[in-house]
Write a protein that binds this DNA or RNA. Structure first.
Length: 777
DNA sequence: GGGGTGAACA
């Protein structure tokens, strides 16, 4: 009867507490027995003596071959069980094969040997009830038959054990917490833990509870527990797994609770360190790079040095991660410090360490130092302490660095020596770098030669090769050939990606073929090529610059529908576009949208708005914006002042323009560029202040600002008004000397003026590139 | 049990 309650086929309910009839004092016959009239002889209390191995199979076979109803009256079984230890009981129950059978056996033990586990008797102060072991095996069977996502049977069994006052064995508790944890049943895990006798708790079960708490987002509870452990208030010593558990929580984004903060992690790692537990190299590297990636190199530095201070063993990997982070922040000082430290601590830099350093030097255009470092790495010079074998990545870094500064021929030579001198084969990245080098230098033919060579050498071109060549052709204004090449490659099976489309869309917009650019966007969508935000930015910018703001706006909507956001650059492009169209309302709409999206306006945004109000002659608003801009710590730059100066000149307030010019040079420490000089020189000449304009030209030379054709045109126009021939000849000589080519404006000014005064010979020499004042009149 | 650090295209 009782056993029916355990029949899991009758779900639900799964388990009902057996009626309190299992007490030994119950007179009711509890089993259908074949010999009810012959009650079994009184059995001595079970003495779980030393294990007899051979008795286990005997007991198991007896249990398997007889009906559970017969067990209570089976004296043979009883006697066999007398010699079984608690651990044998566990083994026996395990071997019963099913949850149902094991439960029947548990039930038999529970009811027929109450002396050991009566519900009223307290648990043994030492050791644990033999029943707990049998129950553990029951749980193990349940686990096997359970759906791990919703362990309903386990929960029911756990409640059953509480009702039956069968204390949990350590392993039972472990099992339950593990499964409840996996099923995100954190409350149940906590209850199991609290049911487990405190003296039985070990670090393993604590770790599982910790994991359960963290996985269900109860970060504060988990951290409190860790804190107690670290302060030795929990009677268990933390181990490596404890720290691993906490660290993994730091790395997985937790949606149900809050995330673990950097400061907390540092505190915890330090606490563990004081217990002699350190994150291994992989963890530490991960920590360091996560800190660095979220812009907290200081924290990364702190955690690495803390581990080192407390005696953790370190290798190059976490140092490499920190070097990368510092490199991104351009913190050369601390990079050097770190290298010195590695040497002091006898931590050998590896090929990646050198890769990071070389890459950083290349990014700063310090290619010769990069080559020097590469030599040093190889231990080429006497006295070099290290000898690291280069790999293809570090070779590629060098080659890329050379190509980026226009030394692609050297890069090519380096690639030629890679195999013989450095023992590594060029790969796709190697070729891509050099192809890009030739493309950027405008040497498309050389780039294609290399493209052919790579195929011949069995190096597979990839989508970046394709994009590099397409971009190269676009930059040489061969947009049509670029598109043809793209089509041809797609036919051959080399598919383009969103970058290919971004390149082409930008190029077609720039060559004023907006419709083709839009068609390409459609082609991309239809070909099933996944788009990214940048391809939208390319088209939106192109449309805006072409003045097609309605189209741009419709692509902004499409971008948002696709789940992307505008970036600050595209926001600025749009604001500028509306301002140029004199549609301030719409520009302001974009500005508000930007604020709403949480994108902060930058100096370019303010400059755009300042320029707009300047252009309109609304100096009051322009200055108000200028003030606001400075409040937000965006210092006005040469563009800002340029807009103001230009606007004041245009409005005829030349003195105001000069005032700003003088201010920016002296007190504001912003040096004027040639645009500003040109504006002022032009305005001064037009107001008949040719002397002042000439002195500004001298000022330019002094400050090292290069005069261009516009500068000379403006000045020559002024000189023509005054008919200052000698000065004009001097300027013409300067133009020749500085290889500053005259344009049609120059020619217009000079042709009219010099013909009128009979100096056409000077003009002829000037056009031919000779100095004019040295010529014979 | 799985987890980290350096290279190419807009």
């Amino acid at each position: 009867m009782r056993l029916r309650a355990f029949n899991f086929k009758n779900l639900p309910p799964l388990l009902k507490p057996p009626k309190p009839q299992f007490s030994s004092s119950t007179a009711t016959p509890r089993h259908f027995s074949t010999e009810p009239q012959n009650p079994p002889p009184p059995t001595p209390p079970l003495q779980f003596s030393e294990d007899h191995k051979h008795t286990i199979p005997q007991i198991v076979s007896l249990l398997q071959t007889t009906s559970p109803d017969e067990w209570p009256t089976n004296t043979h079984l009883h006697h066999l069980l007398l010699s079984a230890s608690p651990h044998s009981l566990l083994k026996i129950t395990r071997q019963l094969g099913s949850l149902q059978k094991s439960l029947q056996f548990f039930d038999y033990l529970k009811n027929d040997y109450p002396s050991d586990s009566s519900p009223t008797s307290p648990p043994a102060p030492l050791g644990i009830s033999p029943l707990s072991f049998a129950f553990q095996a029951v749980l193990e069977h349940a686990v096997r038959e359970e759906d791990p996502k919703s362990p309903a049977k386990l929960l029911e069994l756990f409640n059953f054990s509480k009702e039956q006052n069968v204390p949990l064995s350590l392993n039972s508790a472990t099992l339950l917490i593990k499964l409840f944890g996996r099923a995100k049943m954190c409350d149940e895990s906590v209850t199991v833990f609290s049911e487990l006798r405190p003296d039985l708790r070990n670090i393993h079960v604590v770790n599982l509870l910790l994991d359960s708490l963290l996985k269900s987002g109860r970060i504060d509870d988990a951290l409190k527990m860790v804190d107690k452990m670290l302060k030795s208030q929990l009677n268990v010593q933390p181990n490596d797994t404890t720290m691993d558990t906490v660290l993994s929580a730091f790395f997985t984004r937790n949606w149900s609770g809050r995330n673990v903060r950097e400061e907390e992690i540092i505190g915890i790692v330090s606490g563990f360190g004081e217990h002699g537990i350190f994150p291994d190299s992989v963890w530490l590297t991960q920590l360091v790079s996560k800190f660095c990636r979220s812009g907290k190199c200081d924290k990364a530095w702190e955690v690495l040095h803390m581990v080192m201070r407390l005696g953790g063993e370190l290798n190059a990997a976490p140092y490499n991660a920190l070097l990368t982070g510092l490199g991104k922040e351009n913190d050369f000082r601390r990079m050097n410090l770190l290298m010195i430290e590695m040497k002091e601590k006898d931590i050998s830099p590896d090929v990646k360490t050198f890769g990071i350093l070389i890459n950083h030097l290349c990014k700063c255009h310090r290619v010769d130092e990069a080559l020097e470092t590469f030599k040093k790495m190889r231990g080429g010079n006497e006295g070099d302490e290290v000898c690291v074998v280069p790999d293809v990545v570090v070779c590629n870094t060098i080659i890329h660095g050379l190509c980026k500064v226009g030394r692609q021929e050297e890069g090519l030579k380096f690639m030629g020596n890679m195999k013989l001198e450095h023992g590594c084969m060029p790969n796709t990245v190697t070729y891509n770098s050099i192809i890009d080098g030739f493309c950027k230098a405008g040497e498309i033919e050389r780039a294609f030669e290399l493209f052919e060579r790579m195929k011949k050498d069995g190096v597979e071109p990839n989508v970046i090769t394709l994009n590099t060549l397409v971009d190269g052709m676009c930059k040489c204004e061969r947009v049509g050939s670029a598109l043809e090449f793209f089509d041809k490659m797609e036919e051959k099976g080399l598919k383009g990606n969103s970058t290919t489309y971004s390149i082409l869309i930008t190029a077609f917009c720039r060559s004023n073929n907006i419709d083709k650019a839009m068609a390409l966007f459609d082609q991309m969508s239809q070909s099933g090529c996944p788009s990214d935000a940048i391809v939208y930015y390319s088209l939106i910018s192109g449309l805006t610059r072409a003045g097609r703001l309605d189209d741009a706006s419709s692509f902004v909507s499409k971008l948002k529908k696709a789940g992307f956001c505008l970036d600050i650059i595209t926001y600025n492009v749009l604001i500028g576009g509306y301002c140029r169209k004199n549609k301030f309302e719409q520009a302001y709409e974009i500005f508000k949208d930007m604020e709403h999206a949480g994108v902060k306006p930058d100096r370019v945004t303010y400059n755009t708005l300042v320029s707009y109000f300047c252009e309109k002659g609304d100096f009051e608003t322009a200055h108000r914006l200028l003030k606001k801009m400075m409040q937000y710590r965006f210092l006005p730059n040469v563009v800002t002042y340029g807009a103001l100066i230009h606007a004041y000149c245009k409005a005829g307030h030349l003195d105001e323009a000069m005032k700003i010019f003088k201010e920016m040079n002296s007190s504001l420490k912003v040096s004027a560029n040639n645009v500003i000089y040109n504006t002022l020189i032009d305005a001064l000449c037009k107001s008949d202040k040719v002397d002042v304009a000439l002195s500004l030209m001298d000022d330019m030379k002094e400050k090292g600002v290069r005069a261009n054709t516009t500068t000379y045109n403006a000045m020559l126009k002024g000189l023509r008004e005054r008919n200052w021939l000698e000065k004009a000849f001097k300027l013409m000589d300067e133009m020749t000397e500085k290889a500053c080519n005259p344009d049609y404006v120059t020619m217009e000014i000079l042709l009219e003026w010099l013909s009128a005064v009979g100096q056409t010979e000077k003009l002829r020499r000037f056009v031919q590139g000779y100095e004019v004042s040295a010529s014979v009149p």
